[in-house]
Design a protein around this nucleic acid. Structure first.
Lengths: 136, 136
DNA sequence: CATATTGTTATATAATGCTTATAACACTTT
DNA sequence: AAAGTGTTATAAGCATTATATAACAATATG
């Protein structure tokens, strides 16, 4: 399943799980119908409580990302693919877009630079990977 | 000052203030050297506690967005404009970029569509406004 | 200089959110 | 029937967020 908790990440654990599951779907590592790890199993493997994992799964269900049914394993839901007009999509991502735009601006990034940066994550979902230092 | 608390926003109040100040700077409504509202004044106008506003100002100071000096009003700091290499910028925005990319993907947005959406917020910071039948 | 303004520090308290801990229950699969 | 899995329930601990007061320190104002 390849989920890891990052201590340096200030977000709550369940949020990190939510994000990572979404990213795995984006990268194609998880596809429609695929089974997620059982809550107890994932919880044990991460050394956390069952309910923390379950909370993450509940959030994913509420966002339509996975399906939950009693007795059966959690499965990746059918893509919603709501055609979303521009303004509809903006409703869903509005907060993130505004925050990203403001933060990027304060970093002195141009629109092109930000686009390029974003493309890196859109392609396959894999980040830069570079560890701390990097050659220029 | 034009700051408003959104009850539907799940983020803490101080975070909303942080975001809105940043967005005002991005839009040019606040510029280098401009004074922010005094903590007590903003707190009163929002009907919240002094320390909640102060907490927001502290976070903004920690991010280099504003300067705080005893006895003087908070002022918008000189732009940091750290030239930031691509990977440096990614370090700062990495989490936001990954999350946005994944969420956009799950919404079925193409790279172009996401770029266009992002541009709306980059231009002036003002959201939608122009709605119509968009091409998909 | 005197006073008001403003950021800062210090306590204390309450409310909420996150995580853990146990246990039992309900549905599905084997 | 048994095992696996999601679900519900209850409780507790801890961190974060927000509130409430009060006093202090540096700056601005008159």
């Amino acid at each position: 399943m390849l989920i890891a908790i990052d201590e340096r990440d200030t977000r709550p654990i369940y949020q990190q799980i939510v994000s990572q599951v979404k990213e795995q779907i984006q990268r194609g590592e998880l596809q429609q119908g695929d089974e997620l790890l059982p809550v107890r199993e994932l919880a044990d493997s991460l050394g956390i409580n069952l309910h923390t994992v379950r909370n993450a799964y509940l959030k994913l269900r509420d966002q339509g990302v996975i399906n939950l049914r009693l007795g059966r394993r959690a499965r990746v839901a059918r893509p919603r693919r709501i055609p979303a007009t521009a303004t509809e999509a903006d409703m869903a991502l509005g907060g993130q877009l505004r925050e990203l735009a403001a933060d990027a601006f304060l970093l002195g990034l141009s629109a092109d630079e930000l686009h390029a940066l974003l493309d890196r994550h859109l392609a396959h979902g894999s980040p830069p990977e570079s560890d701390s230092k990097e050659k220029k």
